[in-house]
Design a binder for these strands. Sequence first.
DNA 1: GGAGATTCTTCAGTTGCTAAACAAAGAAAG
DNA 2: CTTTCTTTGTTTAGCAACTGAAGAATCTCC
Lengths: 401, 401
Amino acid sequence: MTHSSTRAAVLDLVRAAGTISRVGLVNATGLTGGTISTVVRGLIDEGLVVETGHAESTGGKRRVMLQLNHFARYAVGVHLDDARITCVLTNLGGAVVARISRACAGEPSGLAARTVDAVIDSVGVDRDRVLGLGLVSPRSLRGWEGHDLGPALERATGLPVVLDNDAAAAAIGEHWAGGVGATSTFAALYMGTGIGAGTVLGGTTYRGPSGNAGEIGHTCLDVDGPRCWCGARGCLEALAGPAAVVAQARSDRALTRAAGLLGGRTRPRTPVSADFAALSRIARQGNPRALALLERSARYVAAAARTLANVMDLEVLVLTGPGFAVAGAIYLPVLRAELDAAFFARAAHPIAVRLSPSAASAPAIGAAAIVLQSELVPRHQGLRLPDDLAAGEPPVFQPSA
Amino acid sequence: MTHSSTRAAVLDLVRAAGTISRVGLVNATGLTGGTISTVVRGLIDEGLVVETGHAESTGGKRRVMLQLNHFARYAVGVHLDDARITCVLTNLGGAVVARISRACAGEPSGLAARTVDAVIDSVGVDRDRVLGLGLVSPRSLRGWEGHDLGPALERATGLPVVLDNDAAAAAIGEHWAGGVGATSTFAALYMGTGIGAGTVLGGTTYRGPSGNAGEIGHTCLDVDGPRCWCGARGCLEALAGPAAVVAQARSDRALTRAAGLLGGRTRPRTPVSADFAALSRIARQGNPRALALLERSARYVAAAARTLANVMDLEVLVLTGPGFAVAGAIYLPVLRAELDAAFFARAAHPIAVRLSPSAASAPAIGAAAIVLQSELVPRHQGLRLPDDLAAGEPPVFQPSA
DNA sequence: GGAGATTCTTCAGTTGCTAAACAAAGAAAG
DNA sequence: CTTTCTTTGTTTAGCAACTGAAGAATCTCC
């Protein structure tokens, strides 16, 4: 057998390239033809890769082209929200094979397990071809997972479960299924109940030591701005997050009526996402006050995005998540303008800003992609992390010799 | 011989730990005792590592402690500024063995080469124990290097030359010689003629695809702020960079006189760093207007630092560079307060803010550290970067089979 | 229908690591 | 002091992954 990390690297290249030959893999990896030959044979034997045809000849034997066998394995992605549960079954390519989305309030473990089973059975996929289950939720709902939702789902479904937050998942999903290259550096700007970002640096997802990397919600955009619940002033979330936008709309009587906003004061637990979607809808239909509100928000988000792109030296920015699914058309041009202008003057490389084609179900698809990635491109090779270097060392030593 | 990346990893662990035994290395790396034994023997034979004594027994044979042989190799670091050239010779531990700093205006290649020779000869170090030369300058002076300063120095000194920018170098220097752990995630906030940051994520320096990672100078702190030369509004550099602070001071007649600021209008090429240093000096001596000016700047820098720490999920922030060398005492408490408050309310992990003990010569020391790192902990193992995945692929292919 | 080019496979040889036995050095107990 | 146990470090054989070079297969061009 071949070294697992090489196998994973080759598989990932096949995925990223879509279609590639053995010679192409030799060039991309730096390995020799012999090694590639062996590794590819193994992948074909496992059914993960298939030969799909021939390239045009360049003067000699035609190259045999390889592709991921998209339907060799599957993964389940579950996205928990403040109001919904969305569950998708994807194939190896990250394409959605089945999808169920239903309202969900309160403790979701039972419902989640039943939804997972339903989604798998709905297309009659063999269960041991399902690699695992990705479970994704906003950081604010982290409580359930930590307790037992993960293990409970693991028991109920028999699938290995991995957890992550929505923004990181969206980024990984974009990296896996989207058109971004294998070594690209980009962020997925995520708007759900809050606003966040998942980051992929040089083809590797960057989470940070405490798993909070990409927390853009508390980017400071005004040192004298309104106080945020986090204690600081002028945070993006307080100025321009979905909750802030909805709050601003609710203080406008006419706008509240036009958008049909769900009441505010009586029930504090109103789903912000629904009101934000309603607001976006009438803005796109031409309501000037809603449009002004969203464009104001977009200006702040654009400034924060510019900072993020600067600091992380990003190449691509993808807008995704339920928020941008409904309001992307309003935010996109504002962000594009901001980033184009800033980088043109400094003669820096341009930053591509894109709207995710599947923004609404991005977190669920991303959750499945995390499973694909962790099962097929696993454990970043290398040495064990020496968290506590001298932890095992006796404290004192006597110089000698 | 053993695999080079393992050798490098072990060497880096010895460096990071200061003093460590073979068993400690086994625990830290996950390798077996046999492998460590072989690798360490090789390192001792090369003279890079020495046995320094014994630890206390934990019930059996005492551990033989290993240390870097600090004086086995040396590296030269050169820092070019708008007004000075600073050159240091460091040993393997990053400790300064010799240092020369002199004024320098205009094209520096001849002077640089002579200074390098002088610094090596001043302590009579054997030239083939000098691993190489790191050359560091602010991004604004990048012109000279790109042309021929690097190759010219290489020819004149006979040493391999590596280039980098000042902020990144400072971060690497802090990582190499400072007390930060081997896998830490931190940024070196650098204040020189401008303000920037070098970032180390999980023990690896992160430069970004275009080498501009950590560019904090154009962090947006006020969407309606003054227009920056970059085209955007409210950039940190325009609001609170050294040049902005000096400009604000110059518009205050009394302050200009008290600080003895070098004239402004006549010669546009006034060294900002000198004026900033003068301002800091009288602020520390109690001048209230200078202090107010710097504290205002510190508030902006603190907000930008908070954003940086949020987005990158940093553990440590080190203030370094000539700017913080003179004004660190004023900025440090403001940054500490800002970061403590923000992270206390969100129950996130605290962020340590430190002032570099050698802030003034940090870039030069960092330049030398880059050489040490690139020679001793080289080439991040792994596959060749597949920049152009399908570059070698014929464009069309015919499906078959 | 060769000749040359290109792709892919096969196989011996090298390398870097592990596992396990062994040797050495000290602590604890009698 | 001797015995026994623990811990540290070294040596050895063996294995798995990769390289390099030779060869087989397939296609184009003349």
